[in-house]
Design a protein around this nucleic acid. Structure first.
Length: 502
RNA sequence: GGUCCGUUCGUCUAGGGGUUAGGACACGUCCCUUUCACGGAUGAAACACGGGUUCGAUUCCCGUACGGACUACCA
């Protein structure tokens, strides 16, 4: 029975897609590609109160940016359209009715207020209220009331929900791809709402119905769903359907302390938890995105893939294609993974160094002639984590220094250094081939003739020209500044330095 | 509180009844570079605890501790 693999990523459009959700999408994508299956995007928008405009497009854009776009679903259509649950509303009712007819579900008329009261009552007695086999007989539902009463309520348009009648006794078990056997007694489960009073299905119903109709073979989702997996299994059983294979992914944890990674951690830590920048349509609050921070898609994917999975080899850098090749559900970890921004940066650096020089040049130094821009990229690429830092460095590089590294001045500025700089300043105009090697020659010869050691002067020369005690190769820097600029900067320094002595 | 899940260096993790417990990030030192960065080398750094099972347990089992998720007419 080798069914064709069909997996889905099923986010709710309630805000920006969380990075943990992106990892879930990635694992689904990898598994689909690995097995020659189909990756489906379904939008679970059954909660009308939490709908956020733009969120769905944000999900699409994010997946597209990362290159893990779905084969089927919202944004790309397919044989099971529509893929937006709000547009499938009518469908769910008939399945709920089926369970109703078979006595596996029932009407419940309890209002939210009544249920809140029950919860408060139970809590005051030190226990937790559950709508289950024990309590449902005393509540307002079609199991506890006479048929005539129920009909009357229904006829008078009294709001109701449909609840699943969970058996009082029994055990639900399933074999999770990540956690192996999981079993739960039905006595600890409650009669979950299947249809809400607004006529919309809850997540549980819609999810199970759609996964079945869309022929989903593997449900790969976050661990937060593990507690409701037995309920879903029970639903499959109630319908007489075969349940898909489940794989519950470990959570992404906050970098410090404990708990699920949240937006707050991002603000605190100064790193993004969203794939792309998000502007809250209500408040206008801007949340950082991996994309805008300068993370490359491949680096983001590689980093995310390793949070909860590893190939079992010592290779760490994987292209998307290599990830597909190496991926397997069996190698997913059980324990939650802390989000470590240092590791993310390291991955980015690795990918940045492999990036196309011309592309980086055009993207980050658009105002410069391509040849110059490329030279700058070469000069700075090894010292940056994010591409936009290149532009920043070039900007600083191009500006004449106004402050000079004090520590270096204190240590190295002396008569010999001064003489060295003067000699260099005197000889540089005579340098005929203004490129790194030629400049070096000129300086070497000039200093040798004056009997001055290079080591005594070079760092001071660097400070004189750039202001900094450290930086990229000085000769190449001088070449890029240009002869006149270098000479002018040198003279400027020579006139300022003596005044800096105190 | 209840249910479920988890626990190897600070972090991501490999491993698995007998290993010097491996790699990567971060950190230290050294080399390269008269600088810095990159790169290379190297160091420090871990099997939560207690019982079993076993000739032998970090690995298997059971407890305990700790952590987490869930506990809505949210997903």
């Amino acid at each position: 029975m080798s069914q064709k693999v069909r997996v889905r990523f099923a986010p709710s459009p309630t805000g920006p897609l969380h990075i943990g959700g992106v990892r879930t999408a990635l694992y689904n994508y990898l598994f689909a590609r690995k097995t020659g299956g189909t990756f489906i995007l379904r939008i679970e928008d059954t909660d009308q109160t939490r709908f956020v405009p733009g969120a769905e497009q944000y999900i699409l854009d994010s997946l597209a940016w990362l290159g893990i776009s779905p084969d089927e679903g919202v944004g790309s259509d397919g044989p099971h359209a529509p893929y937006r649950q709000s547009e499938r509303k009518a469908l769910y009712k008939q399945y709920a009715d089926q369970l109703l007819k078979e006595g596996k579900a029932y009407y419940a008329f309890d209002s939210s207020e009544e249920l809140d009261e029950m919860r408060a009552l139970f809590e005051s007695k030190g226990s937790a209220f559950q709508y289950n086999a024990l309590t449902r007989v005393k509540l307002r539902n079609s199991l506890a009331m006479s048929p005539a009463e129920v009909d009357a309520l229904l006829a008078s348009d009294t709001p109701y929900v449909i609840r699943l009648k969970v058996p009082a006794k029994g055990e639900i078990r399933f074999q999770d791809s990540v956690r192996d056997w999981v079993h739960v007694h039905t006595s600890s489960m409650d009669d979950k709402v299947l249809m809400k009073s607004d006529g919309m299905p809850t997540y549980h119903l819609a999810n199970v119905v759609d996964d079945h109709i869309m022929e989903i073979t593997h449900v790969i989702r976050g661990e937060e769903w593990l507690p409701s997996a037995p309920l879903h299994i029970l639903l499959y059983q109630s319908f007489g359907w075969q349940a898909p294979q489940f794989a519950h992914l470990p959570l992404l944890l906050k970098p410090e302390g404990n708990g699920k990674l949240s937006k707050r951690d991002a603000d605190l830590g100064g790193f993004p938890v969203f794939p792309m920048e998000w502007v809250d349509p209500q408040t206008g609050t801007v949340s950082k995105g991996f994309k805008q921070e300068g993370y490359l898609p491949a680096a983001t994917l590689n980093f995310l893939a390793f949070l909860g999975w590893n190939p079992g080899t010592e290779q760490e850098l994987f292209s998307l294609a290599e990830l597909v090749d190496a991926f397997s559900l069996e190698r997913i970890n059980k324990a939650g993974a802390k989000f470590d921004v240092n590791k993310a940066k390291w991955f980015n650096q690795q990918y940045l160094k492999q990036a196309d020089i011309a592309e980086l040049a055009q993207a980050n130094l658009p105002s410069l002639p391509l040849k110059d821009a490329e030279a700058f990229v070469h000069l700075f690429l090894d010292r940056v984590t994010f591409p936009q830092e290149i532009g920043q460095l070039v900007h600083e590089f191009s500006n004449r220094p106004s402050v000079f590294d004090e520590a270096v001045m204190a240590n190295k500025w002396n008569l010999e250094a001064k003489n060295g700089l003067e000699v260099i300043a005197a000889q540089l105009p005579a340098c005929t081939s203004w490129e790194a090697e030629g400049i070096k020659q000129t300086i070497q010869v000039a200093l040798e003739e004056s009997g001055i050691k290079m080591g005594k002067v070079m760092q001071i020369l660097r400070v004189a020209l750039s202001g900094n005690g450290a930086g990229p190769d000085l000769m190449i820097s001088m070449q890029l500044w240009g002869k006149e600029e270098v000479i002018e900067r040198l003279h400027a320094a020579l006139s300022v330095f003596p005044k800096l002595e105190s």
